[in-house]
Amino acid sequence: MDNIKYNVLIPKIRQKFILNTLKENKRIDNRSFYEYRALKIRYGHLPNADGSAEVSLGNTIVLAGVKVDITNPFPSEPDKGIIIVNAEFPPVASPDFEPGPPDENAIELARIVDRGLRKPEIVDLSSLCIVPGQKVYRIWIDIYALNHDGNMIDAAGIAAVVALMNTKYKKFTFVQDKGLVDTGEKAQLTLKNFPVYVTHVKIGDHILLDPVLEEESLADCKITTIVSEGNLITGIQKSGVGGISLDELEKIMQNSINLYQTIKENIQKEVSKNG
């Protein structure tokens, strides 16, 4: 139950400055309320990983690595592969992070990312089955924060999706009497969907997109909306202590849907730029 404090200390005069700036409809980094920070993506740069991506949103940097192995399926879904998302906030990413097993914040982030990949399935899990009831592929997605400057969820979401996009895994077949045999070929993971994680914070009466760490620390609460193909909402998470009205939620969800196409194209553009 013990947890590290993730909210940075902000001197009072700095708080005042930030709040006053918001009153004038401006943000400390000169962005408009519904503007994302610059997005940079590198991917496939870690050869030992089956898929990888490093995503920067302004100064926030998140790394995602994919490893594929073979395991027994869950008894409840004998003909489906498995996706597991893990996240860690290592001390490298912030003076406030401490070594140790993932805490509640990291676990929450992993589970939010996971939610966006599951319904609708981003990967056809049936295609990851080798022998029903016995052998299936298991996709491990490990998310590592490298630098925390707010809104790690959106960055982590992009990193997970892009890492999956460039995942190639060893193809195995089942041969009678021999068991699993490496075919020597590599299979490319194909994605059926394109979830985008859109995080807003509420600070007083203001709603801001893609908060930096200081904004996140001052926020009453944070709402992550996951939007997928067809303008469908495929996940929501409120985090943070403050309450929010239904009208404000409506505004945030509507804005997230409005932004979907632009964010998606922005990600695709970045991906096509940097191999």
Partner: peptide
């Protein structure tokens, strides 16, 4: 005020 909100699914 809404104090908890999560959504899972489509």
């Amino acid at each position: 005020k809404v104090v908890l909100l999560q959504m899972d699914g489509t």
